[in-house]
Write a protein that binds this DNA or RNA. Structure first.
Lengths: 335, 335
DNA sequence: TTATATGATTAAATCGATTTCATGAAAAGC
DNA sequence: GCTTTTCATGAAATCGATTTAATCATATAA
């Protein structure tokens, strides 16, 4: 049906091998023949068959990306970073919207042994670390964004949760708050834990006693934040500020406040995390933390592609990127 | 390095052909041999090589999707619809974030003649129709979401812009408005035009004269909406309501109003389109139009996959889906 | 001028599955 | 019991590129 490399070769009066060299711009083709071949390719509108190329060269120039939900700005932005870097390096990106199903994540991971992708990037995966390690041990290339695992073959990229959480709580304390609540995400997630750590560190430095009753968890979604705040309000310890582990849950907090007639920030200061696009349009605009999502995606894609091309390992492969705390009206005492 | 189909065949004591049949669950394999083969596959942890499969079978089970910006909820939701349907049908999805660059769209289109994807879905493409027609004429499978083109081989899926725009403007008129402005998107886009059409139809039915001075265009982005509203305010004709062709631009309108001290909806009623997640958190919550984004993605993926598998054409291949107008506070007269 | 090194090109093997065609075995028909 | 179908399996060709090893051509050295 379509053209094949031999057709081009015939037309240009050379062998298929030479055409292939031109295609992959190998240095050892004379200018003159190269020109002939390129002309033939153009005239015949020849497009090399990817499958054949992949099969013979043993690389597909494809990256897989697994995220829980594309329609959450945080993940979309990471994907953009990955896609753009991949594009610059002539890679393609296959996406998996796992819908928070570990099972679906696992099915997509099978693209690795199938050789349908050269590498896989997981964003805050739910799947067991043990399974990831198995893949890595078998020589597959995988990277993780959003958390760190302890495996020498699995690079990771994340932000310094402890650091920015410390800054957030420090800011709240400076605003005069002492009764500061914390709403985490999934109880056993790294983010939840590390952000709590930064929270406690700030309290400690300011000699404010830590009260376990001020800690609650949601599920990183609006509903979870809503429920968590209601529980905190019902408890006996009064609170004047709340640090919420992500913006989605902060939306739930806003909703709860609206229903309960609690004014932000007068009655309750609120800070979230992620700098979701929504946050600056809220009333009041939400203080939050800008995570360099795009950058994290791009860095991870670049590192993995480097590894695939050079097949070399860098010793250091855990990247921790700085975040920026964005102060808006939701956490600032009115004059 | 890895296992090959012959290894499995040897282990199971059958020929590669039989293993292949089991893999593609062909009906003509005895239960007993099938079991043997499956056992061997499991024991050896065999994973068929995709490239080889694609090469021989001449299909890659991949769909390409081109969108202007993944981090806009409208597109993310469409992608989700596509990905989920693809997943159910064992297809994979390659994404392109074109960043509104026609050039990048065109580069990704080359995946078709390269046979890297079996079909391509374009969402509101910027690229020339002529180029799309060329691909379609060459026998490539492409589909379009968000607009319709007149080519018998290119299916499309969109919402009834005229209809819901009519409903929106009708609603504004019922609220007592007569000086209703319209802010379109890209001047030459189908959406811009069709939504204007619905606007005019509503005016006409209510015997309200059409004033060209009340029409302006943005670029479907926040900035464009902002600038357009400022221009409308500067003009001599006073306005009491504005219908904005998408929510992004409506955000710009909100910004302009905030700066100018214009109250919504008291001084100016506003309605957008897309039901962007942000809209319900705005103050006041924005009236908008819910487009069945997920459904559009899923339908288009399904139709294209059907076409790829049966290789049959349906006569009717332009799908127009109904949208729902969502009335919120931004367009309702206060009591 | 001949020998040697270097550069450009080609012939043929290869990647790992699917699929056509041929063949053997079992079931059905007479 | 013998022929004819039907069903299950295998041998070998095939998909379309890349790449190794061999060959030819040209430049350099002696």
């Amino acid at each position: 049906m379509d053209m094949k490399i031999v057709d081009v070769a015939k037309r240009a009066g050379v062998s298929p091998a030479t055409v292939s060299r031109v295609l992959n711009d190998s240095s050892l083709v004379k200018e003159r023949t190269k020109a002939k071949v390129l002309a033939a390719i153009k005239e015949m509108d020849y497009h090399p068959n990817s499958a054949a190329k992949h099969l013979r060269s043993q690389r597909t120039m494809m990256l897989g990306v697994i995220v829980p939900d594309i329609n959450v700005s945080y993940f979309a932005e990471i994907i953009k970073g990955i896609e753009n870097m991949a594009y610059a390096r002539k890679y393609k990106v296959i996406i998996c919207d796992s819908d928070n199903k570990a099972e679906k994540e696992q099915e997509y991971l099978a693209l690795l042994p199938n050789r349908a992708v050269d590498a896989m990037i997981l964003v805050t995966p739910l799947i067991d670390n043990a399974i990831l390690y198995e893949y890595a041990d078998k020589g597959h290339t995988i990277g993780i964004i959003g958390k760190t695992v302890t495996h020498e073959r699995i690079p990771s990229c994340k932000t310094d949760n402890v650091k920015f959480s410390y800054q957030v709580v420090d800011h709240l304390i400076e605003q005069g708050h002492e009764q500061i609540a914390y709403i985490g995400g999934y109880p056993d997630s790294v983010e939840t834990y590390e952000r709590l750590e930064g929270y406690m560190k700030a309290l400690k430095e300011h000699h404010i006693p830590f009260r376990p009753g001020l800690i609650d968890n949601g599920d990183f979604e609006e509903e979870g934040g809503y429920a968590a705040l209601l529980r905190l309000l019902d408890a006996k310890t009064p609170i004047t500020a709340v640090y919420v582990a992500n913006d989605e849950m902060a939306l739930g907090v806003y909703k709860a406040c609206r229903e309960k007639g609690i004014r932000i920030p007068e009655d309750l200061a609120v800070v979230g995390v992620d700098n979701n696009r929504i946050t600056k349009y809220l009333l009041p605009p939400l203080s939050t933390v800008e995570q360099p999502k795009y950058t994290m995606g791009a860095i991870m894609a670049e590192k993995l592609i480097d590894r695939l091309t050079d097949n070399e390992f860098e010793d250091k492969h855990h990247f921790v990127i700085d975040s920026e705390v964005i102060i808006r009206e939701s956490s600032v005492r009115k004059a």
